[in-house]
């Protein structure tokens, strides 16, 4: 398991190559990359991502451990940036490795759903003369329901 919370950029291709390399037991690697998008009517100058040092790493580790218990995974990689980012910049990536693809796909979706609303990050969009905190969406919270076992 490799969890990194960092300010600087990362090279997703190199990260993915290194993650997938030298694993004869692995038949599938799934990855997700999140980018800063700019859909606001006012063009965004930049995004500020704040986090809670210490808790962030703990929360992501807990989520990744949960994924490892639910699915058969050879490895998990999570890189999440904070600080000032511009439209088009890479915010984060998740990669999962498993023997068969079903586990890697499901675990990557699970990690993303939980990282969105359970890892302590907050995004602020800065436009020309305004700055606004991004509000959490109800559908992000609802997305967690599908992982809750019903009994």
């Amino acid at each position: 398991m490799d969890i990194r919370v960092q300010e600087g950029p990362f090279a997703q291709g190199e990260e993915l190559d290194a993650f997938a390399k030298g694993r004869p037991d692995v038949g599938a690697v799934v990855s997700f990359t999140g980018l800063v998008r700019d859909l606001a009517p006012d063009p965004m100058k930049h995004m500020e991502i704040e986090h809670y040092p210490g808790m962030t790493e703990r929360a992501i580790t807990t989520i990744a451990e949960e994924a490892q218990q639910r699915w058969s995974l050879a490895d998990v990689l999570v890189i999440h940036r904070y600080g000032r980012l511009r439209p088009g910049d890479t915010i984060m990536m998740v990669a999962t490795a498993s023997r068969h693809r079903a586990d890697a796909f499901a675990a990557a979706e699970f990690l993303m759903d939980y990282l969105k609303s359970r890892a302590p990050f907050w995004k602020k969009e800065v436009t020309g003369d305004d700055a606004e905190w991004v509000a959490a969406k109800d559908e992000d919270e609802a997305a967690l329901d599908r992982w809750t076992p019903r009994d």
């Binding site: 999140g34 986090h51 993303m112 302590p120 990050f121 907050w122």
Partner: peptide
């Protein structure tokens, strides 16, 4: 103890 709004990671 920490207080914050709902998180918006990912």
């Amino acid at each position: 103890v920490a207080f914050f709004p709902p998180m918006t990671g990912g």
